[in-house]
């Protein structure tokens, strides 16, 4: 067996042997599907629609589910920094690029899996509880974004954590940014011109069916902006780890 699959297998076993790690993507799917279905069931009959935009309704639960995905991305590498287990990993897999690449690949794969199951579940939950038409022309795009968004988010968070080399610092930056700064200030005129380019804002736009006149980019471009952030964070994380090898 060659070195690359070995490094990936090691990362996979690291994931499955640590409960606090593997429960987070499961929790994310549960929240993504559960919150959509619960809110749909609570409001569906009375109000008909939680929102005019089926994308916002279907992915309502993702607002909760993404919290677990952020935690997953940070923990995946952050717990190795904070326990200094990263040194053990690096003696086992001395090529930093290979070690980090294996982690990125696992993060992306789990992100895609959680995205696929979460999106399918969220659509099913929405369709079962809200008598609205979710088929629209934007369906294919929103569903694609629903699969990709969690994967980008996990890889982005992993990259940022590698950049800091510290779990606590990464959590401290990412949690308020993704959950407070971005959604709250993203709607404030004068600030949204800048905040609309934050990765989560941009990526979430692709989940929506309706156009937002306040945004200067389109739905697909939004997803591309998030992909760019993700690539930058992933690369920056690697460079930072290389630089920290004094």
């Amino acid at each position: 067996m060659s070195a690359v699959p070995q490094a990936f297998r090691a990362e996979r076993i690291k994931l499955t042997t640590l409960r606090s790690l593997w429960v987070t993507p499961l929790l994310s799917v549960l929240l993504t599907v559960g919150a959509t279905a619960a809110v749909g069931a609570a409001l569906g009959d009375k109000d008909r629609n939680l929102t005019d935009d089926p994308g916002v309704g279907v992915f309502y639960g993702l607002n909760f589910g993404q919290a677990a995905m952020v935690a997953f991305g940070v923990l995946l590498i952050g717990q190795e920094f904070n326990t200094r287990m990263i040194d053990v990993s690096r003696t086992a897999v001395p090529r930093l690029g290979r070690l980090y690449g294996a982690k990125l690949a696992l993060a992306a794969l789990i992100g895609l899996g959680a995205g696929a199951v979460g999106t399918a579940g969220a659509y099913a939950g929405y369709a079962a509880t809200v008598p609205a038409d979710w088929h629209g022309p934007a369906f294919a795009r929103a569903a694609t974004a629903g699969v990709l968004y969690p994967a980008f988010l996990v890889v982005f968070c992993l990259g940022v954590t590698a950049l800091f080399g510290n779990l606590t610092a990464a959590m401290g930056l990412l949690t308020p940014t993704v959950f407070l700064l971005s959604p709250l200030l993203g709607g404030v005129p004068g600030l949204r011109e800048v905040f609309q380019f934050l990765p989560d804002r941009a990526g979430q736009y692709a989940l929506h069916y309706a156009d937002d006149p306040h945004l200067v980019y389109g739905h697909w471009t939004g997803l591309a902006i998030m992909a760019l952030w993700t690539a930058l964070a992933a690369y920056g994380g690697l460079r930072a780890m290389q630089r920290r090898t004094k």
Binding site: Q6, A7, R9, A10, E11, R12, I13, K14, T17, L18, R19, S20, Q79, E80, T83, M85, V88, S89, A92, V93
Partner: peptide
């Protein structure tokens, strides 16, 4: 090492690597 893993779990990933 991570305290949440079992002794066996810790060695399993190392062996696989």
């Amino acid at each position: 090492l991570h305290g949440g893993r079992t002794a066996q779990g810790h060695l399993r990933w190392l062996a696989a690597s």
